[in-house]
């Protein structure tokens, strides 16, 4: 993985390389180089499997960190390629032309985080949240508790304390 990083370094502006274990490493790449790096990894380095695309909301740094996890079947290595994009303008290039299944992740990311992937098929269609009208729910600035309380009615608590009640039910003679 180290050697891979060094070789990649010659062509791409990759940094923040971290090795988790012998077969898993992460590195970071600027937004503009992501697609070319992924293409490179897929076509030349043998990382042919897109395992997943995830997103972490770094509200404090005002950025989303996208992670593209790739797998190499010949060496059984995983490489996570991370890219940080701005929260203010969350637009990213799609990778559905490289991996067909990429569009599903992209739809999910759009629905949950509001990250747009222009050109990705059906990216604006609702996927999991049918008829969702609120803000993207996975963003950290979305308060689910408040939303839930405002939207769904709460069952009033039964005034019996469970512990006491069960004791009464089970061992009434005590």
């Amino acid at each position: 993985m180290e050697t891979l990083y060094k070789e990649l370094k010659q062509y791409f502006d990759v940094d923040e390389f971290s090795v988790q274990k012998a077969s898993l490493a992460f590195l970071r790449v600027p937004k503009s180089q992501l697609v070319s790096l992924l293409t490179h990894m897929k076509d030349i380095r043998g990382y042919t499997h897109l395992v997943m695309v995830t997103c972490v909301d770094y509200l404090e740094q005002d950025s989303f960190l996208l992670t593209y996890l790739l797998h190499n079947y010949s060496t059984h290595c995983d490489l996570g390629i991370q890219v940080s994009i701005s929260r203010q303008n969350p637009v990213m290039d799609g990778i559905h032309h490289l991996w067909e299944q990429g569009r599903v992740y992209q739809r999910e990311l759009f629905e949950m985080f509001g990250i747009d992937f222009p050109g990705s098929p059906d990216v604006h269609e609702p996927m999991i949240l049918e008829g969702w009208q609120g803000p993207p729910p996975m963003r950290r600035d979305f308060d689910t508790k408040a939303y839930s309380e405002a939207t769904y009615s709460h069952r009033p608590r039964d005034h019996k304390e469970p512990e006491e009640y069960m004791k009464q039910q089970l061992y009434p003679e005590d």
Binding site: P137, S148, Y152, R155
Partner: peptide
């Protein structure tokens, strides 16, 4: 299904079906 259980604060789960 009765009161939301562990999803009591979920944005997408109803808490009482009897409604």
């Amino acid at each position: 299904a009765i009161n939301g259980g562990m999803y009591w604060d979920s944005y997408n789960t109803v808490k009482r079906i009897d409604e």
